[in-house]
Each structure stands twice: as C-alpha cells, then as structure tokens.
C-alpha cells in the first residue's frame, strides 16, 4: 500500500465510533421491545437500556476525541502479502468451524494444521502433513483419550463405521 493512502489512527477511531453508534442504535431498538417491568421488579429491558445509552455516549466520545486529534500517527497495517497470510489463517479458522460438525475434531485438526503449516512454511508438503497428523492424533489422544472431553465426533467417521 502506498504510504500516502495509509489510514491514520484518527480515521480508524472515527470509523469505530460511528460503527459503535450504529450498533448501539440497533441494540437499543431491540432492548426497547423487552418488558420494562415496574419499580418493585425492574424488567429485562431496564439494564440493557442503561448500557446502550452509556455505550452510545462513549461511542460519541470516541468520535469527538478522534475529531480533535492532531498529528495522528498512521495505523500499523500489514503489507499486502502479510495481510493475505493473516486472512488465510483467519479463513482456516472459519473452515475449521464449518467442517468440524461433519469431519469431527481429529480430521479437521489434521487438515487445518497441514494447510496452515504449509502456508507459513512453504516448500514441501511432507513436514506440514506430518505436523497435521501429529496434531490431529495428539489432540485426540490428549483430550478425548486422557481427559475424556466430548469433542465433536463428526458424521463422516461414524458413517464409515469408526467409533
């Protein structure tokens, strides 16, 4: 990204404040639909309304504060290649969440580790695959075998007759 267009901290904070305001407005609208209750027994709406109003005021505060900021430093944003790598790891996490109900924890962990390891390391697939299998089996043994934590079993392996 060319240096001239890097957004400043001031711009980032302005956006955050405005998103905060919009978010709070939505939250307050939902909170208003809850029962208010009475004085002897305040209802479910009372506390959220208070929280929403304060958060709204603070969002406005963020906007005002950013507006008055002078000589703001640029945001510490990653270069394009760095950002791509970061987003790929984020996407891997997303795929883990989407796949785990089907593949189960062991296979998904193997897949995730292999892909992320290859992405960060480059070069041959073998070390990545080895790491994947080790993490998949290792986590299964440690958590399910040793600590008896019920992790997602998935649909695939049981359908193939593995329990």
């Amino acid at each position: 990204m060319p240096a001239g267009t890097t957004p400043s901290l001031r711009q980032g904070r302005l956006w955050l404040g405005m998103i905060g305001l919009a978010f709070t407005a939505g939250y307050l609208a939902l909170a208003l639909q809850l029962p208010m209750g009475e004085r002897e027994m305040p209802g479910a709406a009372a506390f959220p309304l208070l929280v929403g109003l304060i958060l709204g005021a603070l969002s406005l505060g963020l906007v005002v504060e950013a507006w008055r900021m002078r000589g703001s430093p640029p945001l510490d944003l990653p270069s394009r290649a760095d950002a791509r790598r970061m987003l790929a790891v984020l996407a891997a996490l997303l795929f883990y969440i989407l796949l785990v109900p089907w593949l189960g924890q062991m296979l998904t962990a193997t897949l995730l580790t292999t892909l992320v390891a290859r992405l960060l390391r480059g070069g041959s697939w073998w070390p990545a695959l080895l790491a994947g299998v080790a993490v998949g089996l290792g986590s299964q043994w440690l958590f399910v075998g040793l600590f008896q934590v019920p992790l997602p079993r998935g649909e695939l392996l049981p359908a193939l007759g593995w329990h």
Binding site: I97, T113, A117, F143
Partner: peptide, 24 residues
C-alpha cells in the same frame, strides 16, 4: 517454529472454546 506454533495454537484454542460448554 512459527509455522507449527500457529496451527497448534489454533487447534488448542478451538478445543478449549468448544469444550467449555460443548457448543458450536
């Protein structure tokens, strides 16, 4: 090394989060 550390931490974080209440 980082290339192993990152996926390892991701898997542990996911297991940790899931196992608190067995919820997706």
């Amino acid at each position: 090394p980082v290339w192993l550390f990152v996926p390892l931490l991701l898997v542990i974080a996911c297991i940790g989060a899931y196992s608190v209440s067995n919820s997706m």
